[in-house]
Design a protein around this nucleic acid. Structure first.
Length: 846
RNA sequence: ACGGGUAUGAUGAAAUUGGUAAACAUGCUGGAUUUAGGUUCCAGUGCCGUGAGGCUUGUGGGUUCGAGUCCCACUACCCGUACCA
């Protein structure tokens, strides 16, 4: 470090006050930070303990043993060029505290870290600066690693993984091959989301508000041949098994909504030209009210009718199809106010129950990708159909009574408030009764059947990019797509001249003719390799398994390791991954479970989520806003312990929090106070009487708060305790307990003080001590203060013996002069005593 | 539009089953120490009022001896989904 921290002398045993100006520290933002004073020499003691921990391998996890296992996981970072920003340490510190506490509770802890290093930013950087992405990745990982180490996390660094390492992605490819062999990976040509700027397809989950999640460019629909993964086959299980896991509720609801299960029926209509038109509906009960049909513009029947010249207004229909196809997703969502469509002239549908001819429209409000791409429209009982019918003058026929006039507004209630009318054999039934009745009838008649539909689509799994896992597939003219044999893995990403994607949507790999040309694993004839690569989400879909046995060459992890560590006991990560990574990895894990590779149905027992750290203006931190806080600056100015403490003290862990440079100081002051107390405490190993109640309450509070992730109040409790120690004085015994409580939060200073007080030599590291014992009997005081209310208003406080009975408490309250002011001349009607808290006297005039 | 969440001092926020609202921290004010700044320590700091006291948890109602917490209605902001038939 060129302009690193100012020189220090050792401050063992004495208060050393060193002035240093932040200008000395580092250029940039820290130059604005105020002048501060150092109480203790964090800059040398933090690396000292980091080194000792590493040498003693205190955080290395054992695969097996007597202790109960605990696997704590955080989402591994994408090693970007900007390095760690202050948002990263929030979840990491939280899980570090949790796992440190578990270790002190006697668990064998696995707390690993790795890098999700494939991805576009690295590739783009490589293109711009003409450096190989592998080199960029290596440098970034080195930078991230040093930053993470500076924060003093109790990570098992012997298990680090990197998704771009062929030894790792060999197994990502292996899983893909298994998916292929089990029919869950397939190639299909279909309209996909195409990012115009990344020149790359996107999964549905990666399209946000009609634009690319990463770069914000418009996304258009494009027909492309893509590898797809059949996540839909697991849709039901992905919903069902949510009941078995301990995820925060909003994650569960978001996943359920995303998967979007709905039950209904498929009904077969017939066109006047003879073809069958199958529609999906959740309201088979309203079939008698179906007065027209709508097909999606892309529907194959429409294409057929056009080709056969059956549609009188074919020109109009084709124009509408073209307009719909050229709209981007963004335009579609923006223009969703007013319904558009074209009626097909010359072709009509027939309602299978009424036998009536009904018009057919095409409209982009019917999606080709959901259900059958065709609907029966019941304008009387569906908002969209009603709106469309009004605009195009379709009949509105009431089949459920109970609402307003259906000519004025649709009646959509699905409960018992509606009763069927105009529906022959359904008349008189409630909607709830009519749905199953109709479904059954349709099945008997052979014109329909019960059906469950999901919003979830299959996962588009190929990307036209360089920096990703090669897909281990080969195309042969005679044999079609063939998987590479497993002994060929890893299929290593070749070096290319240029990483630029081509405008026609080909991966840069396609230009590597030597690499592309290969032989067919099946017939030995000439064949070519797949040149698309896997999406970023591939490597992260199973990484938590690799941590269990990261160096295994024979399998993604040994059976023993998987059996021992599975499942992840506690996984913390961002809400933004709920419908992406979290869903994808649950899918892969279920597949691996079906193969017998992993022992549990679900990968994660418990899932929690952290809030974002926002810049000082309350805005998201970003390079363009210039409000990014680099943890290195804070560490240089205050030390890692202060940063860890502040980031946990900042507010509710699940809520977004605004960074404040100023408030960091409070945490530094707190550590200074702890340091001072350690230097000035009485030389007795006994815990002092005066502090006993406060200390034992604090032991319990901190333990409970860690479990429920209320780190802010845990720290507040320790701050209060320090206040008590300052007031009452404290002993070495008191400090011993406090330092132990503090160690998961501020591990470096805790170790240093532990050594300073002479415990290190005899007992070893503080992080390996058992959690202090909590003695409830010490928390009860002999005298308690109770509030006195008169008529619900606070009037006074009284001090009574802890074991006083209600009568004695009321008598004491009535005897209080401040209370008497309000009870004089009044009669006591009632008194309520809340044990240990308050007494409320209800009085009325005499 | 629907689903979920949030709303408390100047600021970040606390508050078991309904039980002393504002813990803890920042900021600010005054004082002590200091050549001075910073640090440290002490006191104060929701609002109105000299005071006794009154008022106060987005707004309006309700239940209760007692409501930030429960119920009803409303408003604002945030997140998610986006015509899913």
């Amino acid at each position: 470090m060129k302009a690193g921290p100012p020189p220090f002398s050792s401050c063992q045993g004495g208060i050393l006050v060193i002035k240093c100006n932040s200008n000395n520290i580092r250029a940039g933002r820290s130059a604005q930070r105020e002048v501060y004073t150092l109480k203790y020499d964090f800059a040398s003691l933090e690396p000292k303990w980091q080194k000792r921990w590493e040498e003693a391998r205190v955080y290395a996890a054992q695969n097996g043993g007597e202790k109960p296992k605990f696997y704590g996981l955080v989402e591994f970072p994408y090693p970007s060029g900007q390095g760690l920003h202050v948002g990263h340490p929030r979840p990491y510190t939280a899980m570090d505290i949790i796992t440190r506490k578990k270790r002190m509770d006697g668990c064998n802890v696995l707390f690993p870290m790795g890098f999700d290093a494939f991805g576009l930013p690295t590739e783009n950087y490589a293109i711009k600066h003409h450096i190989h992405p592998a080199k960029v990745t290596r440098d970034n990982i080195a930078n991230f690693t040093s930053q993470l180490k500076m924060l003093g996390f109790g990570i098992d660094w012997e298990r680090v993984i990197d998704t771009t390492d062929p030894n790792y992605y060999k197994w990502t490819q292996w899983i893909f091959l298994q998916l292929y062999k089990h029919g869950l990976a397939y190639k299909a040509t279909m309209p996909v989301n195409w990012c115009t700027s990344c020149k790359c397809v996107l999964a549905n989950e990666e399209v946000v508000d009609g634009v690319c999640e990463r770069c914000g460019s418009p996304v258009i629909r494009k027909e492309k041949s893509q590898w797809m993964l059949k996540i839909t086959q697991y849709a039901q299980r992905l919903i069902d098994d949510l009941d078995e896991v301990d995820f925060v509720e909003r994650v569960k609801t978001q996943q359920r909504n995303w998967i979007g299960r709905s039950t209904g029926a498929e009904v077969t209509f017939r066109a006047t030209t003879g073809e069958e038109i199958v529609v999906f509906t959740t309201r088979p009960d309203t079939l008698f009210g179906a007065t027209y049909m709508v097909l999606s513009p892309e529907h194959s029947l429409v294409r057929g009718w056009l080709e056969q010249g059956k549609i009188a207004n074919g020109g109009q229909v084709e124009a509408y199809q073209q307009a719909a196809a050229s709209k981007s997703d963004l335009e579609r969502t923006e223009l969703n106010k007013e319904k558009t469509g074209v009626r097909l002239e010359g072709v009509a549908g027939v309602n299978p129950v009424t036998g009536k001819e009904i018009p057919i429209f095409i409209s982009d409000y019917v999606l080709s990708t959901y259900g059958t791409g065709a609907i029966m429209a019941v304008p009387a009982h569906d908002e969209r159909d009603w709106e469309f019918a009004k605009k195009f003058g379709c009949d509105i026929v009431e089949v459920v009574s109970g609402g307003e006039d259906v000519q004025q507004a649709p009646f959509t209630a699905k409960d018992d408030s509606g009763v069927l009318v105009n529906s022959v054999f359904l008349d008189g039934m409630t909607v709830k009764q009519a749905i199953p009745a109709m479904t059954q009838w349709l099945e008997e008649q052979g014109i329909g059947k019960g059906k469950v539909n999901f919003k979830l689509r299959d996962w588009v799994f190929s990307r036209q990019r360089y920096w990703g896992e090669p897909i281990p597939m080969v195309y042969c003219e005679t044999c079609g797509w063939q998987p590479l044999s497993e002994d060929q893995l890893p299929l290593v990403l070749p070096d290319v001249e240029s990483y630029e994607p081509t405008d026609d949507g080909q991966s840069p790999l396609s230009k590597m003719t030597d690499w592309v040309a290969t032989t067919c694993p099946c017939c030995g004839g000439p064949a070519r390799r797949e040149t698309d690569t896997m999406p970023q989400w591939a490597g992260s879909s199973w990484y938590f398994l690799r941590y269990m046995d990261p160096h295994n060459q024979e399998a993604l992890a040994s059976k023993e390791a998987l059996d021992y560590w599975s499942p992840v006991d506690w996984y913390n990560g961002g809400m933004e991954h709920t419908t992406l990574h979290l869903l994808y990895s649950r899918f892969w894990h279920k597949f691996l479970y079906d193969l017998g590779v992993v022992p549990t149905k679900e990968p994660y027992k418990k899932r929690t989520s952290h809030g974002m750290i926002l810049g000082e203006g309350g805005e998201k931190m970003s390079k363009s806003r210039g409000n990014v806080v680099n943890p290195n600056d804070i560490i240089a100015a205050y030390g890692a312990d202060t940063l860890r403490l502040y980031i946990m003290f900042i507010g509710d862990f699940e809520q977004a929090a605004v960074w404040s440079d100023n408030a960091v100081k409070g945490c530094k002051r707190f550590l200074d106070k702890v340091w001072n107390l350690a230097e000035s405490c009485q030389d007795s190993l006994e815990q002092s009487q005066d502090n006993a109640a406060a200390l034992h309450k604090c032991i319990k509070k901190v333990a409970d708060d860690i479990e429920s992730m209320k780190f802010n109040t845990a720290i507040a409790a320790m701050m209060s305790l320090v206040g008590d120690f300052q007031k009452n004085g404290c002993t070495k015994g008191d400090m011993k307990a406090l330092i132990t409580l503090l160690s998961p939060f501020a591990p470096h200073i805790a170790e240093e003080l532990w050594e300073m007080l002479g415990f290190y030599g005899a007992l070893g590291f503080v992080c390996q001590q058992p959690w202090p014992e909590y003695d409830e009997s010490k928390t009860v005081a002999s005298q308690i203060t109770m509030a006195v209310q008169v008529g619900g208003k606070l009037r006074s406080n009284i001090v009574v013996p802890a074991d006083a009975d209600n009568d004695a408490i009321v008598a004491a309250a009535l005897a209080d002069p401040k209370v008497q002011k309000f009870t004089d001349g009044m009669a006591l009607v009632k008194s309520i005593v809340v044990p240990g808290r308050l007494v409320n006297l209800i009085v009325k005039p005499q």
